[in-house]
Computed example of a mutant assay.
Amino acid sequence: MKLTNIKRVGMLLRPSTPELKEMFFEAKRIFESRGIEVIIDNISGGMIDVMGQPFEMLCQNSDFLVTIGGDGTLISAVRRSYRYQLPVLGIHAGKLGFLADLDFAELEIFVDKMLAGEYRIDQRAVLQATITSPNGQSEIFAFNDIVLTRPSIAKMIRLETFVDGRSFNTYYGDGVVISTPTGSTAYNLSAGGPVLFPLTQVFALTPICPHSLTQRPVVLPGHFEIEMKTPDASALVIVDGQDLVEISDSDTVHIKLASGAAQLIHRKEFNYFEVLKEKLGWGN
């Protein structure tokens, strides 16, 4: 899939980093010199004294999004814009990221390549969580992971887990990471989970410091749905390490892969394994 007739790009900057102002204006110059209007979200704009648009309006008015910052900035943009199905291009302002892999110095050349169709859009899995409580339902999307964990460091948590309606496991420990392939190199990896190729339609369940050493990570096909309950106490649901929801012992959390994918814009020559090798220091 490729973008056609690109007229407007929405831009987001890493929060609390006003020094990105020069990068924004240079990026704006690059796009506008090629006939593409640049708009910025109002939070990023307020940070650098530029008039911006509310995020929802920005998504409605943009052909694709550009983030300048790091992986966290890109993850936030992907998750918040998911309903609009907008491709996202991540530019790293600092170290190379797993996701924000385009160096700012490459932007001008890359924009020309985009306009010539020399780029690619990767389709990546997104987690969809539905929290059901006595008061109703709420829906959450995650690009990296959803973590169910204990609200207090003093106690362990018990998580009853069902797969497609059938009892699967009871996790007892600090919690569980439910990770997309994209998020497999984040908290999931730190907790001892597997690295998953990012374009696969699977997700991983990785226990965090389990009480029993027999509890191991498991990878499930993307068409499965899991249900998790905490019958003894409340719990915290942490989304992409950025948003937090508290659930009670009467709530249930249903998690599955969302029907639509997140779309990441990459250079044609982007190679996931090269990034993985560099970031993890493999072969050194």
Rank of each mutant, 00 (worst) to 15 (best):
L58Y: 10
I43R: 02
D71H: 01
G94H: 01
G117Q: 09
M47R: 03
D41H: 01
S44E: 08
F143V: 12
T130V: 15
E108W: 09
P134Y: 06
S81T: 06
G72Q: 09
V38H: 03
S33F: 07
K113A: 14
M114V: 15
I48M: 04
E139F: 02
V50Q: 08
E106N: 13
F55T: 00
F110M: 05
Q53F: 14
G45R: 04
D122W: 06
V88R: 04
V78C: 13
I75G: 02
I30T: 01
I131L: 13
Q123T: 06
Q128G: 11
K95N: 14
I131R: 02
T73K: 08
A100M: 12
K95H: 15
D122S: 14
L65D: 00
T130L: 03
K95L: 05
V111R: 01
R79D: 02
K95F: 01
E22R: 06
A129Y: 00
Q137Y: 03
A129T: 00
Q60A: 10
S133E: 12
M47E: 13
I140L: 10
D101E: 15
S62D: 03
F31M: 10
Q53H: 10
Q85L: 14
Q123Y: 07
I39Y: 04
I39P: 04
F31G: 07
L74V: 15
R124Q: 14
C59D: 05
I75T: 10
A77V: 15
F24D: 01
G97S: 07
G70W: 06
R124M: 12
G35S: 03
V78H: 02
